[in-house]
Amino acid sequence: MKQRLQQATLHRLLDANARFALGGNGTTNHCPMALCALAAMGAPPARLQDFFDMWESRYAITAPPASKAVERDEWQADVGNPTSFVALRDCFEDWIWCNGADAVLTQTLQHMPFAPASGAFHALIRLGYGLEAQHVGEIAAGLAALASGNLHIDIGSQPRTPAASVRDGLNALSRELSGVQFIGGMITSRLRATAAEPRFQATLPAAPVQPLLLDQMAQAAIALYWQTNNFTALHIVTGLHAARSVFKHLPPELVSQLMPQLWVAMCAAYVSIGAPALASTAVLLTEDDVLPDSADSWHDLFTTAIASDDDHVIKLVYTCYCENLRTPSPLYLAAAARRAGRVLQMH
């Protein structure tokens, strides 16, 4: 009964969020993503409502009405047009109700440039959370954000040698570009500057050819975030988790086609923060950093995250928990605790 009430509240609030614009006051509209993560961590209905009310009063901007209707056979014309977000969302929502989310995802992702870094990875994250919550409006909104804000990083068609591993690929970029700085206050502006950097274009290897590539990328991302405590690196961590959620709904052959662009997006984000050389996990963690990986430790972090109004705390704690279940690493608990500002007690 409690779970039904929580899900009903989540879906009601996600419905209400449709009146908010894609952006917010000085930020992206993180409200639906945070609500989904809060619910997944067990936040009660009252807490979901409190977070929504906080967001509406502090950050929400009313979405402008759609200036036109986008038809199902014409949506590609609006890829890369930020003003088409609402119209694309309405188009995709109707389409999903008719054909199902997986079919629409497959159709659309086959016919537009896959751009995981769009909106500083937030479009992909929103889509992933919408799929987890099984909310048609949010799935449509995430897909519309990917289409309307399409930040495709074009690396040309020249042949590239695959990196031997994720770390080897990042190390190659670090040797050439370590310490590089890009001007711009926004993550997306630094990503665009990275994409235009000749040394990035010349050095970038092709994605490693190996099984469980996404797991390797996620492991490198959490190491990068723990080492740097960098805000862009945080978005790589949460963005890769979202990609995992999205890929579950796609045929394997399409996932194989999309993985190279996910690799490019990760590498561009890595270079955009100066391409720091990655240390090994053994070097990164001290005895004080290694926390007891137990149900009690994660419960403590969930309690802190659920009480927080910081959407990045909420999403990172949830992401680290999920990724740690799949490929355990002490870095996930340590990074989540640091972001949440908690020193966990030994149990």
Score class of each variant (00 low, 15 high):
Gly179His: 08
Gly179Lys: 08
Val180Ala: 11
Val180Ile: 15
Phe182Val: 06
Phe182Glu: 07
Ile183Thr: 12
Ile183Cys: 09
Ile183Pro: 04
Gly184Pro: 09
Gly184Cys: 10
Gly185Gln: 11
Met186His: 10
Ile187Asn: 04
Thr188Met: 08
Ser189Gln: 11
Ser189Ile: 07
Ser189His: 10
Ser189Arg: 12
Arg190Leu: 04
Leu191Val: 03
Leu191Asn: 01
Leu191Tyr: 02
Leu191Lys: 00
Ala193Phe: 05
Ala195Glu: 12
Ala196Met: 07
Ala196Gln: 13
Ala196Val: 02
Arg199Ile: 08
Gln201Leu: 13
Gln201Lys: 08
Thr203Gln: 04
Thr203Trp: 00
Leu204Thr: 03
Leu204Tyr: 02
Ala206Arg: 07
Ala206Met: 10
Ala206Ile: 09
Ala207Phe: 00
Ala207His: 00
Pro208Leu: 05
Pro208Tyr: 04
Val209Pro: 07
Val209Ile: 13
Gln210Ala: 15
Gln210Thr: 14
Pro211Glu: 15
Leu212Cys: 08
Leu212Met: 09
Leu213Gln: 07
Leu213Gly: 09
Leu214Val: 09
Asp215Met: 07
Asp215Ser: 14
Asp215Thr: 14
Met217Phe: 02
Met217His: 02
Ala218Val: 15
Gln219His: 04
Gln219Asp: 10
Ala221His: 08
Ala221Lys: 07
Ala221Ile: 13
Ile222Gln: 03
Ala223His: 12
Leu224Pro: 08
Tyr225Arg: 14
Tyr225Thr: 12
Trp226Gln: 02
Trp226Thr: 01
Asn229Met: 03
Asn230Asp: 15
Phe231Ile: 15
Phe231Gly: 12
Thr232Glu: 08
Thr232Cys: 12
Leu234Ile: 09
His235Lys: 02
His235Ser: 03
Ile236Tyr: 00
Val237Arg: 00
Val237Gln: 01
Thr238Gly: 11
Gly239Trp: 12
Ala243His: 05
Ala243Val: 15
Arg244Asp: 00
Arg244Gln: 06
Ser245Phe: 03
Ser245His: 06
Val246Gln: 05
Val246Met: 08
Phe247Pro: 01
Lys248His: 13
Lys248Thr: 13
His249Met: 08
His249Lys: 07
Leu250Gln: 11
Leu250Trp: 10
Pro252Cys: 11
Glu253Thr: 11
Leu254Ala: 05
Leu254Met: 06
Val255Tyr: 07
Val255Lys: 09
Ser256Arg: 13
Gln257Val: 13
Leu258Gln: 03
Met259Leu: 15
